[in-house]
Amino acid sequence: MAQYLMSVLADSTALATEAEQAAIDVFNDRLRSGGHWVFAGGLAAPGTATVVDGRDGEPVFTDGPYLESKEHVAGFWIIEAPHLDAALRLAALGSRHCNRRVELRPFLG
């Protein structure tokens, strides 16, 4: 089994609609019943982020995300799947249910 990070890509900070949230719940149940669930969460808007650099003496705090971009990660799943084909299916399903594009990226094995 391998683990994959499935990041939800969004181009606005609008939260999931009620219908989208319901669909996400259905998808989550499906992940759990299929034994694919590891963890998931929604993230607050990128503007709420703080970049912290503690490498050198006093930590430096910078308000805002490390990268200003049109799209941002609005949430994520961590899933478990035997191989990429299975993970791609789950990612396609997840994308459909949350109504956003997702990026699938393997954890180092």
Partner: peptide
């Protein structure tokens, strides 16, 4: 290797 692209025949509907 990293993404575990399977060495095999795809799912039938793919």
């Amino acid at each position: 290797k990293a993404a575990r692209i399977p060495y095999g025949v795809p799912f039938r509907d793919d």
